[in-house]
Every structure is written in C-alpha cells, then in structure tokens.
C-alpha cells in the first residue's frame, strides 16, 4: 500500500532514522535517501524512506493551481 503522508525525520543514527507523524514515532531506514537531514520530510514504504520531499516542487504545484484559475 503506498502511503501518501510525508513523515518528519527527528533522529538519525547511521542508516536508521526515527520519523514522526501525528505524535507517533517509527524506526525506518535511510539507505535510499542518504542526503536526508533531521527536520526533512520523507515518504516511507514498508520500513524504508523512498523519497525526500522538495520544497521547490511543492511550490510549483501551487503555480499549476494558479494556471488552472483555481487559486488567485
């Protein structure tokens, strides 16, 4: 099941990280996002982070919405 909610990295120890979401903490692996830092948001799948959230791209989505006349 693909999980859509990004979770926040609160601790890193080598390849392991502790992520937090809604007051819940889970241990995951960072093998595929070695550049992740504490405070970053990642997408987690079955115990591994598979993507790092990019702030710039999030902003681009807003641009798209403006184009669609959905937001002013």
């Amino acid at each position: 099941m693909c999980l859509g909610v990004p979770v926040k990295i609160v601790e890193i120890e080598g390849q392991d990280a502790l992520v937090e979401s809604g007051g819940l903490r889970q241990k995951i692996r960072l093998d595929f996002v070695p550049e992740a830092q504490i405070g970053d948001y990642v997408i987690v799948h079955a115990g591994f982070a598979i993507a790092l959230l990019e702030k710039e791209e999030a902003l681009e989505t807003l641009e798209l919405l403006k184009d669609a006349d959905v937001i002013p």
């Binding site: 999980l3 859509g4 909610v5 979770v7 979401s21 809604g22 007051g23 819940l24 889970q26 987690v44």
Partner: peptide, 9 residues
C-alpha cells in the same frame, strides 16, 4: 492525529 498516522502506516 496519532490514530490517523498509525492507520496510514
């Protein structure tokens, strides 16, 4: 929110 997060996971 913790229940929602657990459900997501």
């Amino acid at each position: 929110s913790s229940v929602l997060a657990a459900c997501e996971m």
